[in-house]
Design a protein around this nucleic acid. Structure first.
Ligand SMILES: NC(=O)c1ccc[n+]([C@@H]2O[C@H](COP(=O)([O-])OP(=O)(O)OC[C@H]3O[C@@H](n4cnc5c(N)ncnc54)[C@H](O)[C@@H]3O)[C@@H](O)[C@H]2O)c1
Ligand SMILES: NC(=O)c1ccc[n+]([C@@H]2O[C@H](COP(=O)([O-])OP(=O)(O)OC[C@H]3O[C@@H](n4cnc5c(N)ncnc54)[C@H](O)[C@@H]3O)[C@@H](O)[C@H]2O)c1
Lengths: 211, 211
DNA sequence: ATAGGCTTGTGATTGTGATGTCAAGCACTA
DNA sequence: TAGTGCTTGACATCACAATCACAAGCCTAT
Protein backbone atom coordinates (compact mmCIF):
# COMPACT_ATOMS: atom_id res chain seq x y z
CA UNK A 1 0.00 0.00 0.00
CA UNK A 2 2.35 2.67 1.20
CA UNK A 3 5.08 2.76 -1.36
CA UNK A 4 6.91 4.83 -3.90
CA UNK A 5 4.02 5.28 -6.27
CA UNK A 6 3.17 8.42 -8.16
CA UNK A 7 5.69 10.53 -6.34
CA UNK A 8 8.83 9.51 -8.14
CA UNK A 9 8.26 12.17 -10.75
CA UNK A 10 9.01 14.86 -8.22
CA UNK A 11 12.67 15.74 -8.01
CA UNK A 12 14.37 14.58 -4.87
CA UNK A 13 16.68 17.05 -3.15
CA UNK A 14 20.29 16.02 -3.23
CA UNK A 15 20.51 16.43 0.53
CA UNK A 16 17.56 14.16 1.07
CA UNK A 17 19.28 11.42 -0.87
CA UNK A 18 22.38 11.81 1.26
CA UNK A 19 20.39 11.57 4.46
CA UNK A 20 18.56 8.45 3.38
CA UNK A 21 21.81 6.55 3.71
CA UNK A 22 22.25 7.99 7.16
CA UNK A 23 18.82 6.79 8.17
CA UNK A 24 19.47 3.38 6.70
CA UNK A 25 22.70 3.03 8.63
CA UNK A 26 21.01 3.99 11.86
CA UNK A 27 18.11 1.64 11.19
CA UNK A 28 20.49 -1.24 10.76
CA UNK A 29 21.99 -0.30 14.09
CA UNK A 30 18.53 -0.37 15.66
CA UNK A 31 17.83 -3.75 14.12
CA UNK A 32 20.92 -5.15 15.79
CA UNK A 33 19.65 -3.81 19.10
CA UNK A 34 16.33 -5.51 18.53
CA UNK A 35 14.32 -2.30 18.38
CA UNK A 36 11.22 -2.78 16.22
CA UNK A 37 9.65 0.63 16.07
CA UNK A 38 11.02 4.16 16.13
CA UNK A 39 9.44 7.63 15.95
CA UNK A 40 10.90 10.24 13.61
CA UNK A 41 12.04 12.16 16.64
CA UNK A 42 14.46 9.53 17.84
CA UNK A 43 15.71 8.60 14.40
CA UNK A 44 16.36 12.29 13.87
CA UNK A 45 18.31 12.63 17.10
CA UNK A 46 20.48 9.67 16.24
CA UNK A 47 21.32 11.16 12.87
CA UNK A 48 21.71 14.70 14.18
CA UNK A 49 18.89 16.18 12.13
CA UNK A 50 15.42 17.57 12.87
CA UNK A 51 12.44 15.25 13.09
CA UNK A 52 10.55 17.24 10.49
CA UNK A 53 13.45 16.69 8.13
CA UNK A 54 13.23 12.94 8.57
CA UNK A 55 9.51 12.94 7.90
CA UNK A 56 9.75 15.20 4.89
CA UNK A 57 12.59 13.16 3.42
CA UNK A 58 10.61 9.96 3.72
CA UNK A 59 7.43 11.59 2.46
CA UNK A 60 9.02 12.06 -0.95
CA UNK A 61 8.76 8.34 -1.43
CA UNK A 62 5.60 7.29 0.33
CA UNK A 63 3.92 6.91 3.69
CA UNK A 64 5.94 4.49 5.70
CA UNK A 65 4.97 5.43 9.22
CA UNK A 66 2.03 4.87 11.50
CA UNK A 67 0.62 7.98 13.15
CA UNK A 68 0.83 7.90 16.85
CA UNK A 69 3.42 5.13 16.69
CA UNK A 70 6.33 5.78 14.38
CA UNK A 71 8.14 3.70 11.79
CA UNK A 72 8.60 -0.05 11.80
CA UNK A 73 12.36 -0.58 11.69
CA UNK A 74 12.36 -3.65 9.43
CA UNK A 75 9.75 -2.22 7.13
CA UNK A 76 11.45 1.12 6.69
CA UNK A 77 14.80 -0.58 6.19
CA UNK A 78 13.38 -2.60 3.33
CA UNK A 79 11.68 0.41 1.79
CA UNK A 80 14.90 2.41 1.88
CA UNK A 81 16.97 -0.44 0.48
CA UNK A 82 14.50 -0.70 -2.34
CA UNK A 83 14.38 3.05 -2.98
CA UNK A 84 18.15 3.24 -3.03
CA UNK A 85 18.65 0.24 -5.27
CA UNK A 86 20.54 -1.60 -2.61
CA UNK A 87 18.77 -4.91 -2.84
CA UNK A 88 21.15 -6.40 -5.35
CA UNK A 89 24.82 -7.30 -5.41
CA UNK A 90 26.93 -4.82 -7.35
CA UNK A 91 30.14 -5.99 -8.97
CA UNK A 92 33.06 -3.62 -8.47
CA UNK A 93 36.51 -3.35 -10.02
CA UNK A 94 39.44 -2.07 -8.00
CA UNK A 95 42.24 -0.29 -9.83
CA UNK A 96 45.48 0.18 -7.97
CA UNK A 97 46.41 -2.38 -5.34
CA UNK A 98 48.83 -0.35 -3.26
CA UNK A 99 48.57 0.52 0.42
CA UNK A 100 45.03 1.74 0.20
CA UNK A 101 43.89 -0.77 -2.41
CA UNK A 102 45.01 -3.68 -0.25
CA UNK A 103 43.10 -2.33 2.71
CA UNK A 104 39.99 -1.99 0.56
CA UNK A 105 40.29 -5.57 -0.69
CA UNK A 106 40.27 -6.81 2.88
CA UNK A 107 37.43 -4.58 3.97
CA UNK A 108 34.25 -6.54 4.71
CA UNK A 109 32.12 -3.41 5.09
CA UNK A 110 31.72 -3.10 1.35
CA UNK A 111 30.35 -6.57 0.89
CA UNK A 112 27.98 -6.06 3.79
CA UNK A 113 26.33 -3.33 1.76
CA UNK A 114 26.12 -5.35 -1.40
CA UNK A 115 29.34 -4.35 -3.13
CA UNK A 116 31.63 -7.12 -4.22
CA UNK A 117 35.10 -6.47 -5.57
CA UNK A 118 35.29 -9.07 -8.29
CA UNK A 119 38.40 -7.82 -10.06
CA UNK A 120 41.56 -5.94 -9.13
CA UNK A 121 44.10 -4.38 -11.47
CA UNK A 122 47.58 -3.00 -11.04
CA UNK A 123 50.31 -1.82 -13.36
CA UNK A 124 53.14 -3.13 -11.19
CA UNK A 125 54.38 -6.47 -12.44
CA UNK A 126 55.31 -7.60 -8.97
CA UNK A 127 51.71 -7.29 -7.88
CA UNK A 128 50.12 -9.00 -10.85
CA UNK A 129 49.15 -12.56 -10.00
CA UNK A 130 49.13 -11.97 -6.25
CA UNK A 131 46.02 -13.28 -4.59
CA UNK A 132 44.66 -10.95 -1.95
CA UNK A 133 41.59 -11.95 -0.06
CA UNK A 134 40.13 -14.18 -2.83
CA UNK A 135 40.86 -11.73 -5.63
CA UNK A 136 43.81 -12.18 -7.96
CA UNK A 137 45.49 -8.98 -9.11
CA UNK A 138 45.35 -8.69 -12.88
CA UNK A 139 47.43 -6.75 -15.38
CA UNK A 140 46.08 -3.21 -15.70
CA UNK A 141 46.93 -3.15 -19.39
CA UNK A 142 44.07 -5.55 -19.99
CA UNK A 143 41.68 -3.73 -17.69
CA UNK A 144 39.18 -2.56 -20.29
CA UNK A 145 38.56 -5.96 -21.83
CA UNK A 146 38.32 -7.70 -18.45
CA UNK A 147 35.85 -5.13 -17.14
CA UNK A 148 33.68 -5.35 -20.20
CA UNK A 149 33.81 -9.14 -20.24
CA UNK A 150 32.49 -9.29 -16.70
CA UNK A 151 30.05 -6.46 -17.29
CA UNK A 152 31.38 -4.46 -14.35
CA UNK A 153 29.89 -0.98 -14.11
CA UNK A 154 31.42 0.40 -10.94
CA UNK A 155 35.08 1.00 -10.14
CA UNK A 156 37.16 2.13 -7.21
CA UNK A 157 40.36 3.94 -8.10
CA UNK A 158 43.28 3.82 -5.68
CA UNK A 159 46.04 4.88 -8.02
CA UNK A 160 48.44 7.83 -7.67
CA UNK A 161 46.94 11.21 -8.56
CA UNK A 162 49.30 11.49 -11.50
CA UNK A 163 47.74 8.40 -13.04
CA UNK A 164 44.15 9.03 -12.01
CA UNK A 165 42.87 11.11 -14.95
CA UNK A 166 44.22 8.63 -17.49
CA UNK A 167 42.89 5.63 -15.61
CA UNK A 168 39.49 7.30 -15.30
CA UNK A 169 39.48 7.89 -19.04
CA UNK A 170 40.15 4.21 -19.64
CA UNK A 171 37.41 3.19 -17.22
CA UNK A 172 35.02 5.45 -19.09
CA UNK A 173 35.95 3.69 -22.31
CA UNK A 174 35.25 0.36 -20.63
CA UNK A 175 31.67 1.52 -20.08
CA UNK A 176 31.97 1.91 -16.35
CA UNK A 177 29.31 4.35 -15.19
CA UNK A 178 30.37 5.13 -11.66
CA UNK A 179 33.82 5.74 -10.19
CA UNK A 180 34.91 6.26 -6.63
CA UNK A 181 38.33 7.88 -6.61
CA UNK A 182 40.74 8.41 -3.75
CA UNK A 183 43.09 10.53 -5.80
CA UNK A 184 43.09 14.18 -4.81
CA UNK A 185 42.51 15.60 -8.27
CA UNK A 186 39.84 16.42 -10.79
CA UNK A 187 39.00 13.79 -13.38
CA UNK A 188 37.92 15.07 -16.73
CA UNK A 189 35.50 12.51 -17.99
CA UNK A 190 32.06 12.58 -19.63
CA UNK A 191 29.33 13.97 -17.38
CA UNK A 192 27.16 10.88 -17.76
CA UNK A 193 29.61 8.99 -15.57
CA UNK A 194 29.09 9.51 -11.88
CA UNK A 195 32.16 10.43 -9.91
CA UNK A 196 32.78 10.59 -6.24
CA UNK A 197 36.12 11.76 -5.00
CA UNK A 198 37.18 10.99 -1.44
CA UNK A 199 39.91 13.48 -0.73
CA UNK A 200 41.32 12.71 2.66
CA UNK A 201 43.59 15.71 2.92
CA UNK A 202 40.78 18.12 2.02
CA UNK A 203 38.54 16.40 4.52
CA UNK A 204 41.13 16.92 7.21
CA UNK A 205 41.63 20.50 6.14
CA UNK A 206 37.92 21.20 6.34
CA UNK A 207 37.88 19.73 9.76
CA UNK A 208 40.55 21.94 11.24
CA UNK A 209 39.69 25.12 9.41
CA UNK A 210 37.72 27.46 11.58
CA UNK A 211 36.39 29.78 8.90
CA UNK B 1 45.36 45.80 0.83
CA UNK B 2 42.79 43.38 -0.43
CA UNK B 3 42.21 41.01 2.40
CA UNK B 4 39.69 39.49 4.72
CA UNK B 5 38.82 42.67 6.55
CA UNK B 6 35.38 43.58 7.75
CA UNK B 7 33.72 40.72 5.98
CA UNK B 8 34.48 37.97 8.43
CA UNK B 9 31.36 38.78 10.38
CA UNK B 10 29.21 37.51 7.57
CA UNK B 11 28.60 33.80 7.76
CA UNK B 12 30.30 31.79 5.08
CA UNK B 13 28.14 29.19 3.33
CA UNK B 14 29.17 25.66 4.09
CA UNK B 15 29.33 24.90 0.37
CA UNK B 16 31.67 27.81 -0.22
CA UNK B 17 34.04 26.47 2.36
CA UNK B 18 34.02 23.08 0.69
CA UNK B 19 34.73 24.59 -2.70
CA UNK B 20 37.66 26.64 -1.43
CA UNK B 21 39.58 23.41 -0.96
CA UNK B 22 38.71 22.44 -4.49
CA UNK B 23 40.06 25.72 -5.79
CA UNK B 24 43.18 25.36 -3.72
CA UNK B 25 43.83 21.89 -5.06
CA UNK B 26 43.40 23.08 -8.61
CA UNK B 27 45.63 26.11 -8.01
CA UNK B 28 48.40 23.86 -6.79
CA UNK B 29 48.01 21.88 -9.95
CA UNK B 30 48.34 25.09 -12.00
CA UNK B 31 51.43 26.09 -10.04
CA UNK B 32 53.06 22.82 -11.01
CA UNK B 33 52.28 23.55 -14.64
CA UNK B 34 53.89 26.97 -14.29
CA UNK B 35 50.68 28.90 -14.96
CA UNK B 36 50.80 32.30 -13.23
CA UNK B 37 47.40 33.79 -13.88
CA UNK B 38 43.94 32.34 -14.29
CA UNK B 39 40.49 33.84 -14.91
CA UNK B 40 37.53 32.68 -12.82
CA UNK B 41 36.10 31.08 -15.90
CA UNK B 42 38.89 28.57 -16.31
CA UNK B 43 39.27 27.86 -12.61
CA UNK B 44 35.55 27.20 -12.60
CA UNK B 45 35.70 24.78 -15.50
CA UNK B 46 38.50 22.84 -13.90
CA UNK B 47 36.49 22.47 -10.70
CA UNK B 48 33.22 21.82 -12.48
CA UNK B 49 31.42 24.85 -11.09
CA UNK B 50 30.16 28.14 -12.58
CA UNK B 51 32.50 31.12 -12.88
CA UNK B 52 30.10 33.33 -10.95
CA UNK B 53 30.27 30.83 -8.12
CA UNK B 54 34.04 31.06 -7.98
CA UNK B 55 33.94 34.84 -7.88
CA UNK B 56 31.21 34.93 -5.28
CA UNK B 57 33.02 32.41 -3.09
CA UNK B 58 36.22 34.43 -3.18
CA UNK B 59 34.39 37.72 -2.66
CA UNK B 60 33.40 36.62 0.83
CA UNK B 61 37.00 37.06 1.85
CA UNK B 62 38.30 39.96 -0.16
CA UNK B 63 39.23 41.13 -3.62
CA UNK B 64 41.96 38.91 -4.91
CA UNK B 65 41.56 39.33 -8.64
CA UNK B 66 42.52 41.92 -11.19
CA UNK B 67 39.77 43.01 -13.54
CA UNK B 68 40.48 42.23 -17.12
CA UNK B 69 43.17 39.74 -16.10
CA UNK B 70 42.08 37.21 -13.51
CA UNK B 71 43.70 35.85 -10.38
CA UNK B 72 47.38 35.46 -9.74
CA UNK B 73 47.89 31.78 -9.00
CA UNK B 74 50.55 32.17 -6.32
CA UNK B 75 48.78 35.04 -4.65
CA UNK B 76 45.42 33.36 -4.52
CA UNK B 77 47.00 30.16 -3.27
CA UNK B 78 48.53 32.03 -0.37
CA UNK B 79 45.33 33.87 0.41
CA UNK B 80 43.37 30.62 0.47
CA UNK B 81 45.94 28.84 2.59
CA UNK B 82 45.76 31.70 5.02
CA UNK B 83 41.97 31.83 5.03
CA UNK B 84 41.75 28.09 5.61
CA UNK B 85 44.36 28.01 8.35
CA UNK B 86 46.58 25.76 6.32
CA UNK B 87 49.82 27.58 6.85
CA UNK B 88 50.84 25.64 9.89
CA UNK B 89 51.68 22.04 10.68
CA UNK B 90 48.87 20.23 12.51
CA UNK B 91 49.71 17.33 14.81
CA UNK B 92 47.41 14.35 14.40
CA UNK B 93 46.82 11.19 16.41
CA UNK B 94 45.83 7.96 14.70
CA UNK B 95 43.71 5.50 16.64
CA UNK B 96 43.48 1.98 15.25
CA UNK B 97 46.41 0.66 13.28
CA UNK B 98 44.69 -2.08 11.31
CA UNK B 99 44.45 -2.42 7.55
CA UNK B 100 43.28 1.09 7.00
CA UNK B 101 45.35 2.67 9.76
CA UNK B 102 48.56 1.23 8.32
CA UNK B 103 47.72 2.63 4.90
CA UNK B 104 47.12 6.03 6.45
CA UNK B 105 50.42 5.97 8.30
CA UNK B 106 52.22 5.43 5.02
CA UNK B 107 50.26 8.04 3.14
CA UNK B 108 52.37 11.08 2.22
CA UNK B 109 49.39 13.08 0.99
CA UNK B 110 48.50 14.08 4.53
CA UNK B 111 51.87 15.54 5.32
CA UNK B 112 51.88 17.41 2.02
CA UNK B 113 48.89 19.34 3.28
CA UNK B 114 50.39 20.06 6.67
CA UNK B 115 49.06 17.17 8.73
CA UNK B 116 51.57 15.10 10.58
CA UNK B 117 50.63 11.89 12.34
CA UNK B 118 52.75 12.16 15.46
CA UNK B 119 51.18 9.35 17.49
CA UNK B 120 49.41 6.08 16.78
CA UNK B 121 47.44 3.94 19.20
CA UNK B 122 46.08 0.42 19.11
CA UNK B 123 44.48 -1.91 21.64
CA UNK B 124 46.06 -5.02 20.16
CA UNK B 125 49.15 -6.04 22.14
CA UNK B 126 50.80 -7.51 19.09
CA UNK B 127 50.73 -4.14 17.40
CA UNK B 128 51.96 -2.08 20.31
CA UNK B 129 55.62 -1.23 19.91
CA UNK B 130 55.67 -1.83 16.17
CA UNK B 131 57.29 0.98 14.26
CA UNK B 132 55.43 1.89 11.08
CA UNK B 133 56.79 4.63 8.93
CA UNK B 134 58.57 6.52 11.74
CA UNK B 135 55.69 6.24 14.19
CA UNK B 136 55.70 3.71 17.02
CA UNK B 137 52.33 2.21 17.88
CA UNK B 138 51.43 2.96 21.49
CA UNK B 139 49.08 1.30 23.93
CA UNK B 140 45.56 2.65 23.45
CA UNK B 141 44.88 2.42 27.16
CA UNK B 142 47.22 5.37 27.68
CA UNK B 143 45.84 7.32 24.76
CA UNK B 144 44.32 10.21 26.71
CA UNK B 145 47.43 11.10 28.66
CA UNK B 146 49.69 10.80 25.62
CA UNK B 147 47.43 12.99 23.52
CA UNK B 148 47.19 15.65 26.20
CA UNK B 149 50.92 15.53 26.88
CA UNK B 150 51.67 16.26 23.24
CA UNK B 151 48.81 18.74 22.97
CA UNK B 152 47.30 16.94 19.98
CA UNK B 153 43.95 18.37 18.94
CA UNK B 154 43.07 16.33 15.88
CA UNK B 155 42.53 12.59 15.59
CA UNK B 156 41.86 10.06 12.88
CA UNK B 157 39.87 7.02 13.99
CA UNK B 158 40.31 3.76 12.10
CA UNK B 159 38.83 1.40 14.65
CA UNK B 160 35.93 -1.04 14.21
CA UNK B 161 32.49 0.57 14.28
CA UNK B 162 31.68 -1.29 17.48
CA UNK B 163 34.51 0.54 19.23
CA UNK B 164 34.13 3.90 17.55
CA UNK B 165 31.64 5.63 19.86
CA UNK B 166 33.62 4.71 22.96
CA UNK B 167 36.92 5.75 21.41
CA UNK B 168 35.39 9.05 20.28
CA UNK B 169 34.21 9.64 23.81
CA UNK B 170 37.72 9.10 25.11
CA UNK B 171 39.18 11.42 22.49
CA UNK B 172 36.69 14.06 23.55
CA UNK B 173 37.89 13.69 27.11
CA UNK B 174 41.46 14.13 25.92
CA UNK B 175 40.47 17.57 24.60
CA UNK B 176 40.69 16.66 20.96
CA UNK B 177 38.54 19.09 19.03
CA UNK B 178 38.30 17.45 15.63
CA UNK B 179 37.87 13.81 14.66
CA UNK B 180 37.92 12.15 11.28
CA UNK B 181 36.27 8.76 11.55
CA UNK B 182 36.15 5.92 9.06
CA UNK B 183 33.69 3.90 11.10
CA UNK B 184 30.24 3.74 9.53
CA UNK B 185 28.30 4.86 12.57
CA UNK B 186 27.16 7.90 14.47
CA UNK B 187 29.34 9.17 17.28
CA UNK B 188 27.55 10.76 20.16
CA UNK B 189 29.93 13.37 21.39
CA UNK B 190 29.65 17.02 22.42
CA UNK B 191 28.70 19.33 19.56
CA UNK B 192 31.72 21.56 20.10
CA UNK B 193 33.89 18.81 18.68
CA UNK B 194 33.99 18.71 14.91
CA UNK B 195 33.34 15.35 13.36
CA UNK B 196 33.76 14.15 9.85
CA UNK B 197 32.75 10.64 9.00
CA UNK B 198 34.05 9.06 5.83
CA UNK B 199 31.66 6.22 5.18
CA UNK B 200 32.93 4.30 2.21
CA UNK B 201 29.95 1.99 1.84
CA UNK B 202 27.50 4.89 1.89
CA UNK B 203 29.62 6.71 -0.63
CA UNK B 204 29.49 3.72 -2.91
CA UNK B 205 25.77 3.37 -2.37
CA UNK B 206 25.18 6.99 -3.27
CA UNK B 207 27.18 6.50 -6.38
CA UNK B 208 25.18 3.61 -7.76
CA UNK B 209 21.76 4.73 -6.59
CA UNK B 210 19.79 6.28 -9.40
CA UNK B 211 17.07 7.97 -7.36
C1' DA C 1 -17.63 2.67 21.49
C1' DT C 2 -15.43 6.81 22.51
C1' DA C 3 -12.05 9.94 24.29
C1' DG C 4 -7.33 11.19 24.86
C1' DG C 5 -2.75 11.29 23.68
C1' DC C 6 0.85 10.66 20.34
C1' DT C 7 3.06 10.91 15.97
C1' DT C 8 2.72 11.23 11.18
C1' DG C 9 2.38 13.70 6.68
C1' DT C 10 2.11 18.04 4.38
C1' DG C 11 1.10 22.89 2.91
C1' DA C 12 3.02 27.32 4.15
C1' DT C 13 6.88 29.97 5.37
C1' DT C 14 11.36 31.14 6.06
C1' DG C 15 16.09 30.91 5.07
C1' DT C 16 20.04 30.11 2.25
C1' DG C 17 22.72 29.29 -1.72
C1' DA C 18 23.16 29.45 -6.95
C1' DT C 19 23.01 32.08 -10.92
C1' DG C 20 22.43 36.04 -14.23
C1' DT C 21 23.69 40.52 -15.25
C1' DC C 22 26.29 44.59 -15.71
C1' DA C 23 28.84 48.71 -14.16
C1' DA C 24 33.50 49.39 -12.66
C1' DG C 25 38.21 48.95 -13.40
C1' DC C 26 42.69 47.36 -15.17
C1' DA C 27 46.04 46.31 -18.99
C1' DC C 28 47.40 47.10 -23.32
C1' DT C 29 47.80 49.79 -27.60
C1' DA C 30 48.46 53.53 -30.35
C1' DT D 1 46.57 60.16 -22.91
C1' DA D 2 42.37 58.24 -24.69
C1' DG D 3 40.27 54.13 -26.42
C1' DT D 4 39.39 49.12 -26.53
C1' DG D 5 38.60 44.70 -24.73
C1' DC D 6 38.39 41.75 -21.17
C1' DT D 7 37.33 40.16 -16.35
C1' DT D 8 36.12 41.12 -11.80
C1' DG D 9 32.97 42.21 -7.96
C1' DA D 10 28.44 43.16 -6.42
C1' DC D 11 23.67 43.42 -6.63
C1' DA D 12 19.27 41.42 -7.86
C1' DT D 13 16.90 37.49 -8.80
C1' DC D 14 15.80 32.83 -8.86
C1' DA D 15 15.66 28.13 -7.07
C1' DC D 16 15.79 25.03 -3.70
C1' DA D 17 16.00 23.15 0.90
C1' DA D 18 15.02 23.56 6.03
C1' DT D 19 11.72 24.32 9.26
C1' DC D 20 7.26 25.31 11.28
C1' DA D 21 2.80 24.28 12.58
C1' DC D 22 -1.25 21.75 12.51
C1' DA D 23 -4.91 18.69 10.73
C1' DA D 24 -5.35 13.82 10.04
C1' DG D 25 -5.04 9.37 11.78
C1' DC D 26 -3.77 5.38 14.74
C1' DC D 27 -3.54 3.11 19.25
C1' DT D 28 -4.82 2.31 23.97
C1' DA D 29 -7.57 2.66 27.91
C1' DT D 30 -11.80 3.02 29.86
N1 LIG E 1 47.29 5.33 1.53
C1 LIG E 1 46.28 6.03 2.03
O1 LIG E 1 45.96 5.92 3.19
C2 LIG E 1 45.52 6.98 1.17
C3 LIG E 1 44.56 7.75 1.76
C4 LIG E 1 43.81 8.63 1.00
C5 LIG E 1 44.05 8.73 -0.35
N2 LIG E 1 44.98 8.00 -0.91
C6 LIG E 1 45.15 8.12 -2.36
O2 LIG E 1 44.90 6.87 -2.93
C7 LIG E 1 45.76 6.65 -4.01
C8 LIG E 1 46.54 5.41 -3.76
O3 LIG E 1 47.27 5.52 -2.54
P1 LIG E 1 48.23 4.40 -2.04
O4 LIG E 1 48.76 4.83 -0.74
O5 LIG E 1 47.55 3.08 -2.11
O6 LIG E 1 49.38 4.48 -3.13
P2 LIG E 1 50.37 3.31 -3.56
O7 LIG E 1 51.48 3.92 -4.31
O8 LIG E 1 50.66 2.43 -2.41
O9 LIG E 1 49.49 2.45 -4.57
C9 LIG E 1 49.19 2.84 -5.87
C10 LIG E 1 49.08 1.60 -6.71
O10 LIG E 1 48.59 1.94 -8.00
C11 LIG E 1 49.32 1.19 -8.95
N3 LIG E 1 49.26 1.88 -10.23
C12 LIG E 1 49.98 2.94 -10.65
N4 LIG E 1 49.60 3.29 -11.88
C13 LIG E 1 48.64 2.44 -12.25
C14 LIG E 1 47.86 2.30 -13.43
N5 LIG E 1 47.99 3.13 -14.46
N6 LIG E 1 46.96 1.31 -13.47
C15 LIG E 1 46.79 0.49 -12.42
N7 LIG E 1 47.48 0.57 -11.28
C16 LIG E 1 48.40 1.54 -11.22
C17 LIG E 1 50.71 1.12 -8.40
O11 LIG E 1 51.41 0.03 -8.97
C18 LIG E 1 50.43 0.92 -6.91
O12 LIG E 1 50.30 -0.45 -6.60
C19 LIG E 1 46.59 7.89 -4.15
O13 LIG E 1 46.00 8.73 -5.11
C20 LIG E 1 46.53 8.52 -2.80
O14 LIG E 1 46.62 9.92 -2.90
C21 LIG E 1 45.72 7.11 -0.18
N1 LIG F 1 39.90 -1.38 5.50
C1 LIG F 1 39.30 -0.48 4.74
O1 LIG F 1 39.61 -0.36 3.57
C2 LIG F 1 38.25 0.40 5.29
C3 LIG F 1 37.60 1.25 4.42
C4 LIG F 1 36.62 2.09 4.91
C5 LIG F 1 36.31 2.08 6.24
N2 LIG F 1 36.93 1.24 7.07
C6 LIG F 1 36.57 1.32 8.47
O2 LIG F 1 37.72 1.67 9.18
C7 LIG F 1 37.74 1.02 10.41
C8 LIG F 1 38.99 0.18 10.51
O3 LIG F 1 39.06 -0.71 9.43
P1 LIG F 1 40.24 -1.73 9.28
O4 LIG F 1 40.00 -2.48 8.01
O5 LIG F 1 41.52 -1.06 9.45
O6 LIG F 1 39.96 -2.71 10.49
P2 LIG F 1 41.02 -3.60 11.28
O7 LIG F 1 40.26 -4.57 12.07
O8 LIG F 1 42.04 -4.07 10.33
O9 LIG F 1 41.71 -2.56 12.25
C9 LIG F 1 41.11 -2.06 13.39
C10 LIG F 1 42.21 -1.81 14.40
O10 LIG F 1 41.67 -1.13 15.51
C11 LIG F 1 42.23 -1.68 16.67
N3 LIG F 1 41.35 -1.42 17.80
C12 LIG F 1 40.23 -2.06 18.17
N4 LIG F 1 39.68 -1.51 19.26
C13 LIG F 1 40.48 -0.48 19.60
C14 LIG F 1 40.44 0.48 20.63
N5 LIG F 1 39.45 0.51 21.52
N6 LIG F 1 41.43 1.39 20.69
C15 LIG F 1 42.40 1.39 19.78
N7 LIG F 1 42.50 0.51 18.78
C16 LIG F 1 41.54 -0.42 18.68
C17 LIG F 1 42.37 -3.14 16.38
O11 LIG F 1 43.34 -3.73 17.22
C18 LIG F 1 42.82 -3.09 14.92
O12 LIG F 1 44.21 -3.02 14.81
C19 LIG F 1 36.48 0.20 10.50
O13 LIG F 1 35.50 0.93 11.18
C20 LIG F 1 36.07 0.05 9.07
O14 LIG F 1 34.67 -0.06 8.94
C21 LIG F 1 37.91 0.40 6.63
Amino acid sequence: MASNVGKMARSIPEETRTRLFLYLRELRCLQKKGICTIPSQRLAEACHVKSSTVRKDLSYFGEFGVRGVGYEVDGLTNELRSILNLDQIVKVALVGVGNLGKALLGFPGLEDEGFKIVAAFDADERKIGQKIDRVTVEDASRMEERIEAQDIRVAIMAVPASEAPAVAQRLAEANVNAILSFAPCELNIPPDIKISCVDLASEMARLVCCV
